[in-house]
Design a protein around this nucleic acid. Structure first.
Lengths: 146, 146
DNA sequence: GTATCTGCAAAACATTTGCAATTCT
DNA sequence: AGAATTGCAAATGTTTTGCAGATAC
């Protein structure tokens, strides 16, 4: 029996084709990495994850593919105070927490009517990104136990 | 009679000292640029604004100063899907709108209880950043009139 | 005169671009 | 063969780093 997750991953070619993207090996694998790592998939991270499996993979392809995915609306790109763009599957509205100590970025299961806003001050809203920053519970515990 | 704005700008040395930053000419001028341009002050923008007035100014100093300001909590840095970090005076909670067409970033006069959150899923929140993305009213008008 | 601050030059790092090689149909 | 895709190498742009010179107290 298939779990929900493997099920999704086995359907990657179909998911790509649904968005008008022809499913090459590289594209399938890149999207798989993004699906497995809901947050903080950087181009470099994806490259490092895959280069062993696909030794000929180039970063250019990773960048090209990510740009294509964003253009087709398959994934979103965002950045949190950094030089590095991050990518994630554009499924649900975004809420992220970034720890100012360990720099880690966590997905927050957070709902708000803000995500439903379609207009603000006369501007048309396509998507909303909420970023919380502070100290994560892990770092809080570490500091307490010092 | 002083307006509120000139009043603030004349107090820059005091504002810096309040945060434990000694007010050199470069630091005063850099902060002045940030105060005048509430949004989208990039390191490069600040440099270009000041290099005529302070011909010896170097980008290193701009970067050093911005890092110092952020460290002391005088300003916040943020980035919106771009390589370039942006800086603004950390006065009020943030809400930005970025147009996907013209790439411009606008300050939104937007209030939400989310800005008051001090905790989320056990993590300590220091600040909250909300980014709306879509099509700004200017671009909407341009497209309509085509 | 010592600590702080500034700035040049070079390095580092993410991303983009031009173009050639490869793959798919 | 022709079109799409991949990938190397070089360029670009932002930010960081090492260190020397200037400035301030």
């Amino acid at each position: 029996m298939l779990t929900a997750k493997t099920n999704i991953i086995e359907n990657i070619p179909a998911m790509l084709q649904n968005k008008g993207i022809s499913p090459s090996i590289q594209r399938i694998k890149i999207f798989e990495v993004i699906l497995k790592n809901r947050v903080h998939s950087s181009a470099d991270y994806i490259y490092r994850e895959l280069v062993h499996e696909i030794p000929t993979l180039s970063k250019t392809t990773v960048y090209n593919t990510l740009a294509l995915f964003v253009e087709k609306g398959l994934i979103n790109s965002f950045s949190v105070d950094s030089t590095e763009l991050l990518y994630e599957h554009s499924n649900k509205p975004h809420a992220h927490f970034q720890c100012e100590i360990c720099k880690e970025i966590f997905d927050m299961d957070f709902n708000s009517t803000i995500f439903n806003m379609k207009e603000i001050e006369g501007n048309m809203v396509n998507n909303v990104h909420i970023i919380f920053r502070g100290m994560c519970k892990n770092c809080k515990t570490k500091i307490k136990n010092k």
